[in-house]
Structure formats: C-alpha cells, structure tokens
Design a protein around this nucleic acid. Structure first.
Lengths: 216, 216, 216, 216
DNA sequence: GATGAATGAGTATTCATTCAT
DNA sequence: TATGAATGAATACTCATTCAT
C-alpha cells in the first residue's frame, strides 16, 4: 500500500469535504462493490491517481470515510444522556428515537451505508465497524434499563437483557422504517413529515410504558 | 427473460436441484451484482450457454430461484395457523418464532438473500418480492392480534397496529440474530444449538406475555 | 457436411415454403452474419436440429435459398424479350424498368439480400451469385443494344459497350431508389405508388430516347 | 458515447493515426457488426480498455472515425469547383470522375465502409451520414447542370432533375466499378491502372456530351 | 503533488453447431 | 426423422489499479 493519508489531510478543508461527501454518497447509493471509483472522480473532477494517492485503494477510501463517519454516530447518544435526567426512562427512549431520526435525516448516506453493511458480508472492515456500533448501542441502553429498574420505573419482574433486546429491536426497526419502505407494516412511517414522526415516537413510547412500566 | 423455463423444467430432478442450489448459494454469498455466472457454471461443471438457455439471463435465473423459494416461505406460517387454536395467542407466537428459525436453518441461503435484498435497492424484482413478503407477514400477524384482543388474552388498552409493529420488529430481529452476528446484543443467538433457541423463544414469549398479556 | 437436401425436399410443400420464406426474410433483414438461426427456428416453431439436418449449416441454408431465388430472377427478363418485338428498343427499356420494379415489389426480400451482397465481401457464394446476376444483366442488354443500333433506332456514333454500361447504371439505380431512400436524389421514388413509378419510368425512357435515340 | 474523445485527441499524432487506420480497415473489411474490437486491439497491440477510454464504445469509435472521414470526402469536390470554370460542363464532369477515383484510391477503406452502409440498415448513424453524403452529391451536381443549361452547353429540352439523376447514377457506378468487381459490365474498370481509368473517364464524358450536349 | 493514459482480467450474453434420445 | 439439451468460443464492455510525466 502506497497511500499517504497525510497527503489527504493537508488538503484544503473544502476540498477534503467534497471528496468525502461524493464518495460517501456513491457508497450509499451502490454499496461497496458496485460503487465505482470512476464515477467518484468524474463527479469530483479530480484525477483518478489523486484518489489513490490519498487512500491507497478503494478499501482504504472506504475505511477512511466510514471511520470518519462513525464518530459522528456517537455524538447524539452522548448528547441525550447529558441533556436528560435519570428520572424519566421513557422520556429518554422517546428522545432517543427522535434523536436517531434526526441523525439519519442529517446523515442519510451514512445510515444507508450502515444498513447495507449489516447483511453484506464482504464489506471491508465490516466486523470492526459493526461490532463497534452494536457494542455502542448495548452500552448505551443497558445502564438506562438497570437504572430504571432500580428506580422502580420499570417493572422488576423483567430480565434486563430481554428489555435491552426488546428496545433495541423496536428502535432499530423504527429507524429502518424511516429509510426503507416495506419495513413499517401497518404503521406507515416512510417519507412522512416531522410532525408524524413525533407522534409515532410518542405512541411507541406510550406503548412501551404500558407494557414495561411499573403500574404502581 | 427471453427464454421460457420449459427447458429447465424438463431436466432430471437431481440436476435441477443442483443448479438451483449452487446458484442460490452464489447469490446468498455475494448478493445480486457480485454474484458471478462464471463461478456458478464452473462449480456446476456445465456450459455457460446452458444456464442462459434455462433462464434467459442473470435476472431470469434470480427471479426463478427466488420466486421458487418464496413459495416455500409461506408453508410454515400456514402450518402453524392450522395446527394451533385461537385459544393461546402467545403459544402461537412462540411456535412462529421456532418455525421461522427452523425454516431459516433449513434454507439459510434463501434467508440471506432476503436480508441482502432488504437494503440493496438494485436487486431485480426487489419491489415485487419485498412487498410480497411484508404483506404476508402483516396478513399473518394482524388477525392473530385482533382475535387475541377479542378473546381477552391481550390487554384491551393496546393499539392493534402497534402490537403488530412490535411483534414484527421482535420476531424479525430474533430471526436476523440467528443469521448474522452483532444483532443479538446481550442475548446471544447466533450459531447456537437448538436447545438454546427454544429457551430463548420461550423467554421472549414470556416477556411479551408479561408486557402485553391481560393480567387478569 | 452431414446435410441431406433430400430430407428437405421430401417435406410437404407448405412447410418447405414456410421455411424458405422465414429464412429469406431473416437474411433480408439482417444480412448473412447478423441473421440468427435461433430466431429462424423460433419463428418457424421447428427444432434447431431439423434445420441443420436439411441444410448442413448456415451457409448451406443460405445457398439453397438464394440459389432457389435467383432462378425467379431470370423469369421476368425472359418474359419481356418474348412479349416485345425488336422494333421498339425504348419500349423494351421502359417495360424492363417496370418489370424490375414489379419483381422487386413481389420479392422484396430477395432483392434486399442481393443488394446487401453487392458490397459485403464475406457472403457465402457471393462470387458465384453476383457474377451470375451481372452476366445475366449484360447478356440481356447487349443484344438489345446491338439490334437497336442495327435497326437505326439508336444513333450509330455510340459505343455499344458504353450504352450497356449506361443503361445498366440507370436501371440499377432506378431499382435501388425504390428500395432504399437517399438514392433517388432530386427525383423522389422511394415508397411511392404505382402511378408515380410508371410516370418516372416513362420520363426516364423519354430522356434516354432524346439522348441516345436516332434523331432522324 | 460516455467518453469525450479528449483523451484520444491528446495522443501523439502517430499513434492516433495508427488507431484510426486499423479500425477503419477492420470496419471496411467486415462491416459494422462483424467488425471485432478484439481484433482491432490485438492488431494495434494496445489494451482493450484503452480503446473504450478513447471512444466510449464501439459505436463511438465508428462515429468518430466515419465523421472524421466524411470531412475529407468534401475536399476534392470543393477543389474541382474552385479550379474549373463554368465554361466547360463536361470537363468538370470528367474531372469529378477522376477526382472521385483518386479519393477512393487514396482512402479505399472509407469508400468501402460507405458502400457497405448503403444497404445495411443497422449501421449506427446511417441516416445521418448517408443523407449528408447524398445531399452533398445533389448540391454539387445541380448548380453545375442548371448553369450549363443556361450557358447553352446542355440541350434545353432536358429536365434538369433527370440530368442530375442520370449523372449521379453513372458517376456512382463508375466509382463502384473501381472498387467492386461485377459492377462494370462490359467495360472493365476494377483493379485497372491509372491510364485506363483516365481513358474510361474520357470515354464516358464523350458519351455524355454526345447524348446531352447541345449539338449546335 | 497531481495527472490521466494504459492495463488486462473480469463481466453478462449470443451463437452456430453437435449428438444422444 | 425429428428433437432440443449441451457446448464453448466469441462478443462488447467495465473496473480497480499502476506509473511515467
């Protein structure tokens, strides 16, 4: 590998961003293997050799770009934990749902790459990235659940691991349904406006509260 | 598809099966575009021209194979409805979980193709196949839910659409976690033995009963 | 070569004709190399093997078919000579023009194959067929010219070879212009009705009479 | 054409010419569809990808090459009009015959492609190129004819459109007979030396003068 | 540091021809 | 005699990658 990421990092900010954006949207649209370096450089108007100087090869470009993106993924979760109190578990869930949708709408390309990666075994660095994302999700939800069980917000006859599995499934599906049709079933979410998203997040939270919350 | 698949259907059973199996596993491993007709025929030891005689082109092969598979998908669900009574909603859910896993373990390639299709926009016939699968899922779950609400098994303060969304999310995640690592979170399912699967299905069902069932 | 033309000749008339017709129109439409045996048998609804049994290979089919057609080519010229007298040279030319157009309109496929063959060196049997046709043309025209010069209908200061070359060029172009656009120049012939064709043939004949005829 | 031909135009002159020459002779020998990119690159000793970089696809190569050639076609006609006076119509025709043969002998491949295109309907850009050539021909001849009729060189009882049709037929056949055997009839032109060509052109011109010229 | 021409193995697809049934 | 499944070399075209300028 002859790449030299320093070369790329010395580029003017604006150009660096353009490169990453165009490449990201190419990968988002076509997945890893169908993405075409030819198309990327044509859209960018730069020489093919330059891209290879920056990142060595296709995989290097992808890893750089997705590693870069994954950091932004962690911001919103952190923000929620900091701006909400331990007191209201279900409010936190609701805010997490909305924050997730916000992030997806702000960075649709990254989320689409992530979804493609989920079931495509031959993405480079797939193991590394996916385990990182999943670990992040569990590390975020589990303390919320155990705290809520301690404080009595959640019923105490529940298995915390089950609750995490449960919440994770519902939340992920909620996000996916905002990105891909077919996944919403009877509650239509795809391509709807913000107002509707908020109503649905509220409805799901209420539903969870009724199912998991302490009736007392 | 310029060829009608009569030629293929006249083949001896054994050969027909070998062709479908090799092709299916190629698509399962690589997705649609990365799947290589060259590799398929090399593994089969038949001439390239033959495959095109059978199915006209790559897309024809895929459609035949996946359309064929999708029919098998519908059998287990039907079987459950017929062999269980309306009386125990949660037993039905538990059996559905196990039947789904059984199917996936019997046809792992087909399920992997389906998962790849979910987030890969350029699969041929994606719209047709996905909407067919999703519709099947909703059409299966909704009557179960409304019947259970009528009979008093499910709490009557729940929105049936929400329950369906809920069940669908959990069930899908349960299946996916059997196929793809990373998706199980704290409850490990991937690559485990049958005993464990049954315990987990039972645990999830119990959990749902506690959350959604009528306490009376 | 394993072909057996007897096999074909034993076929019922109706089938034999259908085979020749479909094959002829395939060659007329696509030329020799682009013509597809696959398409021919599909249109005919017969087995591919049968065609090869009849004619051995693609070239055998073409030779049979075109040899068959070329005989029909000779009929109209013969007919003209027999039904007109030596007395009116220019009437003969005019009738020949109309007879040629009639033949082309009755057998458009054959004429189109002939035209394609003219400039496509790799038609099988091209040499044999073309020289046969050209010889036929000269053998038809030359006696007409010499007779007319003797009888005084044509000016006697003309070189008979030149007259033949001349007439041949004009007549061929007249036929081609009925089949292919672009070749008519300022006198539009392509796709016109019979009335117009007759007018044009008359006009050309008159023109020739003025140019070549004996003014006395 | 997805590629603009800048890449090709930046190539060193010598290479550019070799590429065009080999490609032209391939198309001349085999026509459009039977021409093989594989053969072209093998003969050139360059990579297949390069040719596609230059011209995008087979059709792009053909259009570039033929469009390029068609411009050269127009030079000799223009040259004749400029170097001859209106005074001698038949001298102009004679010079045109010789100039045409000169061009054809200098660019035999291009003329052979043109002839193939005449009766092969599926040449790309056939309509565009043929109508351009034909229009050029008519636009060249018609003013010559009308001028000559006005000046009294041509008999005034002739229809100018007929004269054009006439001249066009004769001239084209004269050119074709230099390229393809069979088309000369009793006056042999194919593969003959320059001396003979000049004699024949003179003979044809004299013949035309006798037929069309004003006897006064 | 940037360029962009060159590469060649890879892709899906077509086709005339053969031959066992 | 008729069938139609099997063949494999051929086709146009794409693509990540290299490297001399």
């Amino acid at each position: 590998m002859t790449q030299n990421p320093k070369t790329f990092e010395n580029l003017p900010d604006e150009k660096r961003e353009r490169v990453l954006n165009e490449a990201t949207s190419e990968f988002a649209e076509h997945g890893y293997h169908q993405a075409s370096i030819n198309r990327i450089v044509k859209r960018l108007g730069i020489a093919k050799g330059s891209l290879f100087k920056y990142f060595g090869n296709k995989q290097g470009l992808f890893e750089y770009l997705f590693g870069h993106a994954i950091n932004q993924f962690k911001q919103p979760l952190k923000h929620i934990r900091e701006t909400t109190s331990d007191k209201d578990f279900f409010e936190r869930i609701e805010k997490s749902l909305l924050a997730g949708v916000d992030f997806i709408q702000a960075h649709p390309h990254i989320y689409r790459i992530y979804l493609k990666m989920l079931f495509q075994e031959n993405f480079p660095m797939r193991d590394k990235f996916l385990s990182e994302v999943r670990r992040g999700s569990t590390k975020y939800l589990r303390p919320l659940v155990t705290a809520a069980m301690k404080s009595g917000e959640l019923r105490n006859d529940l298995d915390p691991d089950m609750v995490v599995f449960h919440l994770d499934s519902i939340m992920d599906r909620f996000f996916q349904a905002h990105t891909v049709p077919y996944l919403d079933g009877p509650i239509t979410l795809y391509d709807t406006d913000k107002q509707t998203t908020e109503n649905k997040a509220r409805a799901i939270t209420d539903f969870l509260r009724r199912g998991l919350g302490n009736p007392s």
